[in-house]
Design a protein around this nucleic acid. Structure first.
Lengths: 107, 107
DNA sequence: GCCACAGTTCGACTTTAGTTGAACCATCTA
DNA sequence: TAGATGGTTCAACTAAAGTCGAACTGTGGC
């Protein structure tokens, strides 16, 4: 199996619209994407609605975003560097990311 | 219960981003939204990937789109008139609908 | 080396979403 | 007003997604 240190990421050409929309259709995952808009963050810096969320659950959220191609998740010392795949998403789905992240939510 | 003839639709102000993204994250539902882009259609005119889909399943797809506020579903004689809520979506989530419907999909 | 740390993965479980036949409800037509 | 038509709703089931403790892995500090 893939070692935890080397996670797989879909190629830009393989980004799939339904998967991206699904990944962003969860309030927690959407919030993560919004936080990453200003630049990469280490995983521990990513604040969620529920600060007591178990790390396995948080890791799962990241997995869904990563497998959809919304974020990159790379080893960074003992931590994890999370990066929004802005360029890839813009190239494949022009205007989509901005429209989603700029949209009012929850209200 | 609400009679089949009078379905409820969320107000523009109540449109919720995660619900809209979720509704559009299914290939069949996305396809329906795309078909409605050119203008309203009667339900029977809406062609799906699987032409043998049971009507209860098709009705369910419409329900998800309607409850998310993506489409209107109104009585039209013995049929149903489906309308994309373009203006409401644009007002609440500017650029989102166009970005989604213009995006390449499945490839 | 050993240990603490930050995160991933696994496995079992709960929850939510999708699927479908059957019953039902309006509407149109004869 | 009876029957056919086009759809919704219900109920029961299947499938998929979320949750989270426990075990595991790579890294850094001592």
């Amino acid at each position: 199996m893939a070692t935890p240190a080397n996670l797989t990421h879909p190629d830009r050409a393989d980004l799939n619209l339904p998967s991206v929309l699904f990944a962003l259709s969860d309030p927690d995952r959407l919030e993560i994407a919004r936080q990453l808009r200003a630049g990469p963050l280490d995983m521990a810096e990513c604040a969620l609605s529920n600060p007591d969320m178990p790390k396995s659950t948080k890791s799962h959220l990241m997995k869904v975003l990563r497998e959809a191609g919304v974020i990159r998740n790379e080893a960074n010392g003992r931590s994890r560097r999370l990066t929004l795949r802005t360029d890839d998403l813009e190239a494949r789905f022009p205007g989509l990311l901005a429209a989603v992240l700029d949209a009012p939510s929850p209200d």
